[in-house]
Write a protein that binds this DNA or RNA. Structure first.
Length: 726
RNA sequence: GCGCGGCUAGCUCAAUUGGUAGAGCGCCACAUUGACGUUGUGGAUGUUAUAGGUUCAAGUCCUAUGUCGCGCACCA
């Protein structure tokens, strides 16, 4: 027996060496796995922020995925797990900009595009090692030889190819539309990047002028200088007589031409039942104005300042609001001032209050029919006419990809049904630059400059556009690679449910468009990690428990187990230091079980004892062990690793240690040599079987033990055969 | 407004197609120099949020209510 078993298990001194052993073995790469492997298992790692650090959420993701990967590898499948990192464009750029502003008092415009991008690349290079070493430290058995970064060369050119293909298919268009403008970040953001905050606001009811017949209500009086109409419901008896009439008024120094229109989208019962239409600064108003052919003047600029002449000129919207209210009061036009609560749209990344603005942006049309050349999706025939929305719905409805937790299918379907065109251009510099060139009124869509005088679109693509291609750009697309053929669609995707619309849905959409395939067959969504009191983990609360620190303190295996125990798919779970400590005890328990068994089997292992020579008690123990193996297998196949872990924990602690080992003591110390030999072999067999089953959950301690076993069927536990004991 | 989820022991959570409500932590008692610094054995604690229904049988299915949380929409 190795001396190391005389001391308690020490994770710190072993984990790094164990990971190196795995990496050096080459077995992370499916091409190097031993034996004949026909079935495949493939999964992409949802790429963490390249300059970020590991938090409990990403640790949970890595652990869940690693368990599936290790299990399937041991099941004899050609198993691929692709690691990667994400540029997190807006977040990374603003981090670097902030740093430069602080240190050098310079803005990005002072530096210029090229210089800023250089600085960002340097920043990424300097910081990416943190996340990469943290992925290793958690024990993730990813294939580093296939590592991908969203901004690396292969991915960049794949993204360009994708954009151009969608443009040529007529699904990407440039349009002037109301977008969510973040005045703080100076960029457009998608609907999903908005966070709603409930605030108190005033709802003012007033008339444009003394002789204007219809009072209107608004929480944003300053936008009313951009009004071109008043909309009423077609069946509203109160206002029927005014429909079609036009009025000229001067509102707060601004001359307005107001047409009264009838539109079904107006709610008769809200406010006065009449809606002041501000086309340029409200989504629904824009649509109304479009339907009635009204002009759509912009009165607020990109810095959230007023663009009108008169007393409001150049004011911030909040100041302008006060001025307008003061003016209304002065003029005696204000009829009512109610306090209401309303949801304010703020930008997720910057916290800026979103200002709806009309802008020339690039969109993906989700409702436009196109001919899909090739489709393997059930219910969508090759050559048929579909929309991207159809693809999103049918991929799930047809069963090609399915949600492990059913309720997410409802969320997904609801989201897909209500989806509007996806605005994919962003006014930042870091990212995949839109491959479109302008010269006067001419437009060319290509990567390289068409020549002198052509200027490239300054915008970059929404980071989720490139992420949406992830399952296949990481496999070499647009080349028709072996990897792509063999590993796509991937077996499973695993991520937090919070990025279901951002990412999961986009992958389904884009994979369907480019490959006619679903990107993955199963969708496993995990919940959020909360602290011991059920609060969200956040910097401001200071309740962050660092997975790497915890790993150093209690061992990575303890962290892994504490993350997945009691974590049902899709539900939020909690983590606390006490829980982690509890599983450190378990790791040590396994260590001591091994010590006991090795001490008592020294010299006898290696020659097999046939079943016929085993005692009935031992045969029963082996049967029970097989039963647990079958149970654990079933749970993992059903993706219930929490239940599998629980079953293993109880078997090993309360059956193997508490019962079998206790019962063995008199036998091992007794005179019945036959019974003793039978028991010795049985214990050793159960030990190796247990180590195999535990390995996906606690890879470090099990591999460390395995390396010191006197007799084993494979050098590296990671590639041992998952099987029953007899 | 539309939708989704949680509510089970003091705390945190399980309970796979409806079939004796469990675990960890905590608590109480006893044992233990042990393979175990991190041990074992035994014990107490539940009208499964509330009310009704279906069923031989309901934590599980149905209806309503309460409560906490989340998503989407609205946000004139």
């Amino acid at each position: 027996m190795h001396d190391k078993f005389l001391k308690p298990y020490d994770p710190q001194s072993t984990e790094k060496a164990i990971y190196k052993l795995w990496e050096d073995s080459g077995y992370f790469n499916p091409d190097n796995l031993p034996g004949e492997r026909n079935e495949t298992f493939s999964i992409v790692l949802p790429p963490p922020n390249v300059t970020g650090t590991l938090h409990m959420g990403s640790a949970l993701m890595l652990v869940i995925e690693d368990i599936f990967v290790r299990y399937n590898r041991m099941q004899g499948k050609k198993t691929l797990w692709i690691p990667g990192t994400d540029s997190a464009a807006i977040a990374t750029q603003s981090k670097v900009e902030k740093e430069i502003l602080k240190k050098e008092k310079k803005s990005r415009h002072d530096l210029g595009r090229e210089e800023l991008l250089k600085r960002i690349d340097t920043f990424v290079e300097e910081n990416k090692s943190t996340i990469l070493s943290q992925i290793r430290s958690i024990g993730a058995s990813v294939d580093w030889s296939r590592y991908a970064y969203t901004m690396d060369e292969p991915r960049y050119s794949a993204v360009m190819t994708a954009f151009i293909a969608m443009y040529n298919a007529g699904l990407i268009y440039r349009g002037n539309r109301i977008v969510n403008w973040d005045p703080k970040g100076q960029t457009t953001i998608s609907d999903d990047e908005i966070v709603y905050e409930e605030r108190k606001a005033h709802l003012y009811t007033f008339r444009y002028s003394k002789d204007f017949p219809i009072p209107i209500s608004t929480t944003r009086p300053e936008t009313k200088v951009g009004d071109t109409a008043v909309a009423v419901h077609p069946e509203d008896e109160r206002y029927k007589q005014y429909v079609g009439k036009e009025f000229d008024v001067v509102f707060c120094d601004v001359p307005l031409h107001i047409t009264v229109v009838a539109d079904k989208s107006v709610d008769k019962d809200f406010g006065t039942g009449a809606l002041g239409v501000t086309p340029a600064h409200s989504h629904i108003d824009w649509d109304i104005a479009k339907r009635h052919n009204l002009s759509r003047p912009q009165v607020i600029n990109e810095y959230a300042k007023m663009m009108v002449e008169g007393r409001l000129k150049g004011l911030k919207t909040a100041e302008a609001r006060e001025k307008v209210v003061a003016w209304l009061t002065e003029e005696g036009l204000l009829e009512k001032d109610e306090e209401v609560s309303q949801n304010i749209s703020t930008a997720e990344r910057t916290g800026g209050i979103v200002e709806p603005l009309p802008k020339l942006q690039w969109f993906i049309d989700v409702n436009k029919a196109f001919t899909i050349p090739h489709s393997e999706i059930t219910g969508i025939a090759s050559g048929s006419s579909v929309t991207l929305k159809d693809i999103m719905r049918q991929s799930v409805a047809g069963g090609d990809t399915h949600f492990l937790v059913e309720r997410f299918e409802k969320t997904y379907t609801h989201w897909a049904d209500n989806l509007r065109d996806w605005c994919i251009s962003r006014q930042i510099w870091f990212g995949h630059r839109i491959p479109v060139w302008y010269k006067g009124d001419d437009i060319k869509v290509q990567v390289e400059s068409p020549g002198e005088g052509w200027e490239q679109d300054p915008d970059v693509l929404d980071t989720w556009f490139s992420s949406g291609l992830w399952t296949f750009t990481t496999l070499g697309w647009p080349e028709k690679t072996e990897d792509l053929k063999r590993f796509h669609p991937t077996t499973i995707i695993e991520s937090g449910y919070d990025i279901l619309p951002f990412w999961i849905a986009r992958m389904i959409m884009l994979s369907g468009f480019f490959l006619g395939q679903v990107p993955f067959k199963t969708i496993y969504l995990h919940g959020l990690i909360r602290d011991g009191q059920g609060r969200k983990i956040s910097k401001s609360l200071g309740n962050n428990i660092d997975p790497v620190d915890m790993g150093a303190k209690y061992g990575t295996d303890a962290v892994r187990l504490s993350l997945i125990m009691g974590m049902a798919p899709g539900t939020d779970s909690r983590i606390s230091e006490e829980k982690i400590r509890g599983y450190k005890n378990f790791a040590n328990k396994i260590w001591n079980i091994t010590r006991f068994i090795l001490e008592n089997t020294e010299g006898v292992i290696g020659t097999d004892v046939p079943v016929s020579q085993k005692t009935p008690a031992d045969i029963a123990h082996l049967d029970a062990c097989n039963k647990i193996t079958a149970q654990v297998t079933e749970y993992i196949e059903k993706h219930r690793i929490d239940l599998a872990g629980d079953a293993l924990y109880h078997y090993i602690w309360h059956e193997l240690a508490d019962n079998i080992l206790e019962e063995s003591k008199p036998i091992l110390n007794g005179d019945d040599e036959k019974a003793k030999l039978s028991r010795q072999h049985t214990l050793y067999t159960i030990l190796t079987a247990s180590l195999k089953m535990l390995h996906p959950f606690m890879p470090f301690v099990t591999e460390e033990i395995w390396q010191s076993l006197p007799h084993k069927d494979t050098d590296v536990l990671m590639v041992a055969q998952w099987s029953n004991v007899r």
